[in-house]
Design a protein around this nucleic acid. Structure first.
Length: 328
DNA sequence: AACAGGCACAACCGCAAACCC
DNA sequence: TGGGTTTGCGGTTGTGCCTGT
């Protein structure tokens, strides 16, 4: 006996929404709100739709102030930077882009940005080679090691290619236990749990203060946080924890992140391109980076980031967390 | 003009986390 | 505190449009 379905699938309409359905849903929510129960909502309205479908339609399309299409270079830059920093956390990335939804960002990444970034280096390294290697990886074993996710692999691939296009595309190697500085997946999970438990109040950390800014943007104080905001807090915790568990053995590449940012802009917009008067420029073969990017992370510019990377070193540590585990 | 393939976007699905009783 | 319910998220699929042949 499986999980109970969230709705009666036979009695529920699927597929594209009609303008009539849109207006019914929009009018009702604007007048009455969601009532705190999406499952019950379609019945109240008289819509033959699943509650989840209503929620998605509202959040991704009908909600006020939704932007569609035409991402700006600034948005491109934020998406790429955050993707490399934290992976496919689309809701978090979208939270930094006012008016954008996670679905929008995800689609934009998958259909355009990823191809733009990886595609430019494709001539040098056949991606099929790495794809085959990833396919052959085991699904994990009894020791609890987790295979590298496609997202993480992609990020490392991007990173390695950006760092040195001449290198072959890396193939992840499951962690060996000979190096005490390298944490297994289980150990990291354990440490993250411990870190979360020892930080229950979550008030005095940098994470909390930056969270407050984000929440304020939505017109609510921290005390008014609903559970819908908490994934952000959880993500902040996880990132904070990941930063502290990063391997110390691979410490000194604090400029990696800003270098990635600079190169991202080159890949996206061409060599020597600059944004907002900042970004990267190539000077005598050495990348000169104006760290405008970090002002996002430090709350100096809007939109403000919603977690607690306060230095490039911390984000770099998160990246190290991925690379160290797989002996890359 | 017809067809195939690619692309972009909307929508769905399954799972895990959070909530509530 | 445990179990059922709801929500949110990320991955995947479906569909319509566009472009090239």
């Amino acid at each position: 006996m499986g999980r109970a379905p969230c709705c009666d699938k036979a009695a529920v309409k699927k597929g594209p929404w009609s303008p009539e359905e849109d207006s019914m849903l929009k009018n009702y929510i604007e007048e009455h709100g969601t009532g705190g129960n999406w499952i019950a909502l379609p019945h109240k309205i008289g819509l033959k739709r699943c509650g989840k479908s209503c929620r998605l339609r509202w959040l991704n399309y009908l909600r006020p102030n939704i932007k569609h299409g035409d991402f700006t270079p600034e948005e491109d830059s934020i998406i790429c930077s955050l993707y490399i920093s934290i992976g496919s956390r689309w809701s978090i990335i979208a939270a930094q882009l006012p008016g954008r939804t996670d679905n929008d960002v995800k689609n934009y990444w998958n259909t355009k940005l990823k191809k733009r970034l990886l595609g430019r280096r494709k001539d040098q390294h056949r991606r099929s080679q790495s794809a085959a290697a990833v396919d052959e990886l085991p699904d994990g074993d009894s020791t609890g090691e987790r295979p590298l996710s496609a997202s993480a692999m992609e990020r490392i691939q991007l990173y390695m290619q950006l760092q040195n296009p001449a290198l072959p595309v890396p193939v992840p190697v499951p962690v060996q236990h000979h190096n005490s500085s390298v944490l297994t997946w289980q150990q990291q999970q354990q440490q993250q749990t411990t870190a979360a438990q020892s930080n229950d109040s979550f008030n005095s950390s940098a994470t909390s203060s930056s969270m407050n800014v984000t929440v304020a943007e939505h017109g609510r104080s921290t005390s008014q946080l609903s559970r819908h905001d908490r994934p952000l807090l959880t993500a902040g915790r996880q990132l904070e924890s990941a930063a502290t568990t990063a391997s110390p053995s691979s410490a000194d590449n604090s400029n990696v992140v800003v270098t990635i940012e600079a190169e991202l802009q080159e890949l996206l917009y061409g060599e020597g391109s600059q944004m907002r008067g900042g970004g990267a420029a190539v000077d005598g073969g050495v990348l000169q980076v104006d760290v405008d990017w970090w002002s996002y992370y430090q709350g100096k510019q809007s939109p403000v980031n919603s977690w607690d990377f306060t230095t490039p070193e911390e984000t770099t540590s998160v990246f190290q967390d991925y690379t160290s585990v797989y002996d890359i």
